[in-house]
Amino acid sequence: MAQIGYSKKVLDHFTNPRNVGVIDAPDGHGKVGNPVCGDLMEIFIKVKDDIITDIKFRTFGCGSAIATSSMVTEMAKGMHVDEALKITRNDVADELEGLPPKKMHCSNLASDALHEAVKDYKGKMGNKL
């Protein structure tokens, strides 16, 4: 049967999102999406020795936009930045036990936001060297 609605895990992450908030003076910050399209998310990371030690997010958007943001922060916490860059949209959807097909693209931008945050961190490190 085709997937109808959201999985239990999506609803859990929507109802009780993990790692909500802002990190002051983050080592990396990524922001993707556009309120005109209905989704905007930003991710803040703290990094020590290339390991993501803390991560927070804020999201404007639908249920899957909020759930994927929450999920990706859980996945990336404690991860090496290079590994975090390898997390794909599909990985996030799989961890959430699937997303409805039409949500796969429009509201699954969380991994993009994470990648932007890591690139921001790497850029800053490059500048320091």
Binding site: L11, F14, D39, G61, C62, G63, A65, I66
Partner: peptide
């Protein structure tokens, strides 16, 4: 302002 409707619907339903 500043929030999205499907999230409103889900939150009203779930919570």
């Amino acid at each position: 302002s500043r929030i999205e409707g499907e999230s409103i619907l889900l939150n009203m339903d779930m919570k």
